[in-house]
């Protein structure tokens, strides 16, 4: 779990590949956001139930322990979490990604310009 610079607004990153996860989180911090990074759906769910909701969740789909689709259906069982925007990051096909009922789909490999462009819509105060 990594923390960014300021405000209560933060991004939740859920990604199992350690290198991708750490790189993305560091890049988002460098962009001026606060970030919380976890390695699977179960960890993400645990975080959400114990903390204030993030302005956006960047969610990988193929993960061990709890995958992105399961995480989404579990998350939607909690009314307080249902409205949190989710953007999927995937190398899977559009149809399979759509099953996660996300606000947007970002296809891997990810480019920071695209990531920041999407995040800005939901987290207007985060970036310095």
């Amino acid at each position: 779990m990594t923390s960014g610079a300021h405000s209560s607004e933060y991004i939740l990153v859920v990604e199992d590949d350690r290198d991708v996860r750490e790189t993305l989180c560091e890049a988002l911090i460098l962009e001026g956001y606060s970030v919380v990074c976890v390695e699977n759906g179960r960890a993400a769910l645990g975080h959400l139930l114990a903390n204030v909701p993030p302005c956006i969740i960047l969610l990988d789909l193929m993960m061990p322990v709890m995958d992105g689709w399961t995480f989404r259906s579990e998350m939607l069982k909690f009314p307080a979490l249902a409205s949190v925007p989710v953007v999927v990051m995937t190398a899977a096909s559009a149809a399979r990604a759509a099953a996660a009922a996300a606000k947007a789909i970002l296809y891997k490999p990810l480019d920071m310009g695209t990531v920041v462009g999407t995040v800005q819509e939901y987290c207007p105060h985060g970036a310095a």
């Binding site: 590949d17 790189t23 993305l24 962009e31 990051m89 190398a91 990810l110 480019d111 920071m112 310009g113």
Partner: peptide, 19 residues
Amino acid sequence: HELRTPLSGLTILISSLAR
């Protein structure tokens, strides 16, 4: 699919440093 994951890390890193 397998190649996309490490490529993703590299792309994020390079594009982040460039930005």
